[in-house]
Design a protein around this nucleic acid. Structure first.
Lengths: 144, 144
DNA sequence: GTGTATGCAAATGTTTTGCACGTCC
DNA sequence: GGACGTGCAAAACATTTGCATACAC
């Protein structure tokens, strides 16, 4: 099951309609597993002949985020599909972000359960998800 | 050495002047070790009789962030002082954020070096810092 | 005194809202 | 058919920039 199929079933499951806009965005994310801003999505879809309003795209992503299809990377204003190595990935988000080219890439989630358990124990804080960003310089920029 | 003293020396060290505005913001952060938006800082300072322009506060935080005195939590638009348990804390930022009351609190950094080393090894990505958010419900909201 | 910091005004950029119309099931 | 989704216009909000004045060292 690829991201698109996964997403479609997820939409149904949550009683959201599969509209032309939602489907177009999902196809884009499925083809390019990378983070987009709503404005970039608008441009990308236009290239494919689909005219979309950014307002709608904001609302599309709002829904997608609610049901765990994307995660918003606030520092970049981008939405990135949550689907790592064939698996839905709602609760842990691990990214590397290059400070030079701004490229962001999802990395395999390491186990942070012991840390979460510790926080739960020490603070009484109920951890539901986590978000981990590694900032630095990517391999491409390093060799420039 | 408290946060204020630490920050003052850090400013000097980086050839930034200790101005009334910067000092006022530092005192505020020193008294309330919590994240503020520039607008909130403006209001807080006004209560103390210090009139500050948000533009200036944005610039103050920009400098503070550059020299590692604060970290911007983009998802909340807030700046949080970096100073955990009496220690400056520039490179690793671990927070718990309550999704209900939005309270954010810094937690003791656990060692993520092995993870960083792994990323460096596998991707050739040079990790310089990381940012870790635990999202969930805080102990106060849990009991409501 | 000199370079940096600040305040004000305004531009820019991002995200949200209201409402009429269109579309999915 | 009815609820939900979309487009357009506009509002609201966040952040940045330019420039003249004020302040720290």
């Amino acid at each position: 099951m690829n991201y698109f199929e996964f997403a479609v079933s997820k939409l149904k499951e949550n009683d959201y309609k599969l509209t032309v806009m939602r489907e177009s965005v999902l196809r884009l994310l499925n083809e390019n597993s990378m983070p987009f801003t709503p404005y970039e999505v608008k441009d990308e879809l236009l290239k494919k002949g689909v005219k979309a309003d950014v307002v709608t795209l904001y609302r599309v992503f709002e829904v997608f985020e609610k049901i765990g299809l994307v995660h918003k990377v606030s520092s970049l204003g981008r939405y990135i599909p949550c689907y790592v190595q064939g698996e839905a990935n709602m609760d842990c988000h691990h990214y590397v972000i290059c400070k030079l080219c701004k490229k962001i890439e999802e990395v395999e989630g390491e186990d942070l359960h012991s840390l979460e358990a510790k926080i739960q124990r020490n603070l009484g804080f109920k951890v539901e998800s986590h978000y981990l960003e590694f900032n630095g310089v990517c391999n491409v920029c390093l060799t420039k």
